[in-house]
């Protein structure tokens, strides 16, 4: 794949997708004061009659979405990732348990969110929603893939949580490559037999950079964008575990319960494989610039590279 030509924030991709979906009259957007941040404001500007503002009230947001869904609407409700967590029990009991389909988007996920500090940096959202039976959990890596995956939710039969990022990162996809992107199917960005690096969200481009550095030393890594954490692409994991010596998972999320956990849980039973989990190691973030924070907790190219090299011993 050619080097990314420019950059995009996945939250912009979400906003663009809502506009693309607006032709379907069942689509309803719900905002709780952060539409300008999550980018649902783009929909609101053009379709105010199908946009509901509920003030700063996340619990109400989730259950209003459930009520709309029970009447055949396809609600898209968004706020900061961290504030969706406030309504976790509403998502569990009032939305997913009754078998209703609405789509929650949490923007500003991860410590990458930056200077707002730890109160705004959700590092456990993916873990939380992954525990709910039947819920789809996604974290796209750029704006182009966020648009594609969000658009696919229109015909998706399960409720979902999608985490998007506040800040721009180098684009992973282009108009052509994104065509084959599909909910529930990990995307192989580079192919190599020595080890695999499975990444999500804002860490995918760093995984690609690490793989490029390794390649220059003659080490060939497979790099995967595992944009859907649940349902996990176990077919892809089966194929990987039978060919590589080990796997590095990379996520701007706690190492407890997220991508690394999901991959480990599956492989420990199917084909025990060494998995090194790069993520936030059971701690909170703090204020700082995105890159400073990622370096602070060891979420950088260097740590991915060194984890991958350590797998060569296996």
């Amino acid at each position: 794949m050619s080097a990314p030509s420019s950059s995009g924030a996945s939250r912009d991709g979400y906003g663009a997708a809502l506009l693309n979906l607006a032709n379907d009259p069942r689509v309803v957007v719900i905002e709780v004061d952060l539409g300008k941040s999550t980018k649902s404001c783009l929909f609101r500007e053009q379709y105010p009659e199908r946009t509901i503002s509920l003030g700063i009230a996340e619990q109400n947001m989730v259950i209003v979405a459930a009520g709309l869904a029970s009447c055949g609407k396809i609600p898209f409700a968004s706020t900061f990732a961290i504030f969706t967590e406030r309504a976790f029990e509403q998502v569990r009991n009032g939305l997913v348990r009754p078998g209703l389909t609405a789509h929650i988007c949490g923007s500003h996920g991860g410590i990458h969110t930056g200077t707002d500090g730890s109160s705004a940096q959700s590092i456990e959202d993916l873990a939380l929603y992954r525990t709910i039976p039947g819920m789809t959990v996604m974290h796209p890596s750029d704006d182009i893939s966020a648009t594609k995956l969000t658009e696919q939710l229109l015909s998706h039969k399960h409720p979902s949580y999608t985490r998007t990022a506040r800040n721009k990162t180098p684009r992973i996809y282009n108009e052509n490559s994104v065509k084959s992107l599909e909910i529930g199917k990990g995307y192989v960005l580079t192919d190599g037999d020595d080890m695999a690096i499975i990444a999500i969200g804002v860490m995918v481009h760093k995984a690609l950079e690490a793989a490029e550095n390794l390649r220059q030393d003659g080490i060939n890594a497979t790099v995967i964008d595992m944009h859907t954490i649940k349902p996990l692409d176990t077919q892809l994991l089966d194929a990987l575990s039978s060919k590589v010596s080990g796997i590095v998972t990379v996520e701007d999320h706690s190492v407890i319960g997220g991508l690394g956990s999901a991959v480990s849980e599956y492989l420990s039973e199917s084909n025990p494989t060494k998995v090194i989990k790069i993520g936030v190691q059971d701690r909170f973030g703090e204020s700082g610039e995105s890159e400073e924070l990622l370096d602070l907790v060891g979420l950088n190219v260097q740590s991915i590279e060194s984890a991958a090299r350590s797998l060569l011993k296996f």
Binding site: Q59, N60, G67, L68, S70, C71
Partner: peptide, 18 residues
């Protein structure tokens, strides 16, 4: 689907809006 208190009126807002 109730059982957890405090949610019903929110759900009703959804059905009334629809």
């Amino acid at each position: 689907s109730a059982g957890s208190l405090g949610m019903g009126l929110s759900f009703g807002i959804g059905t009334a809006f629809a």
